[in-house]
Amino acid sequence: MDAFLFWVLAAGAVSASLLVIGQRNPMYSVLLLIVSFGALSGLYVLLGAPFVAAIQIIIYAGAIMVLFLFVVMLLNVPTEDPPAGYHARLLGGAGPRRFGAVLSAVLVVELFWVFSRMSSPALPGGDEAPATTVHTIGVRLFRDYAFAFEATSVLILVAMVGAIILARKESH
């Protein structure tokens, strides 16, 4: 049952993610991203981490994607209509596309190389018991990895301040 659910959710996540970039309508892209997050959250439940699953939905699917949707609606982004004869020169036409294709091919080769060399994933703290309950996650975050956690929050704050400064108009 678990294996079956895993394959269903994994296939859902991957196909939804692929469709996100395949959509012409930004509204559908946003919605498919939410579907992808939902499938990911289901995978967390299968891994026995309901807390992470709930947080995934609340933060990503609930809060961040609503803002995405908000922006799409507010700006009323038009659908990206393909220019005439688009499909005929999908990869062969413009220079940037060819360049992009080469870069993706390089990335695929690199990924294969990395994964073939890496026998077992050596994650930090991989030898500890998995943190699944709220209590153990809290202890890990605020005691064991307190510095990294706080540093990340400062990093996010810096990004936010930067975005505000970039977006602000000179008023005087």
Partner: peptide, 8 residues
């Protein structure tokens, strides 16, 4: 948290 998630 589940209630919160589904409500959102």
């Amino acid at each position: 948290l589940v209630i919160f998630a589904i409500t959102s």
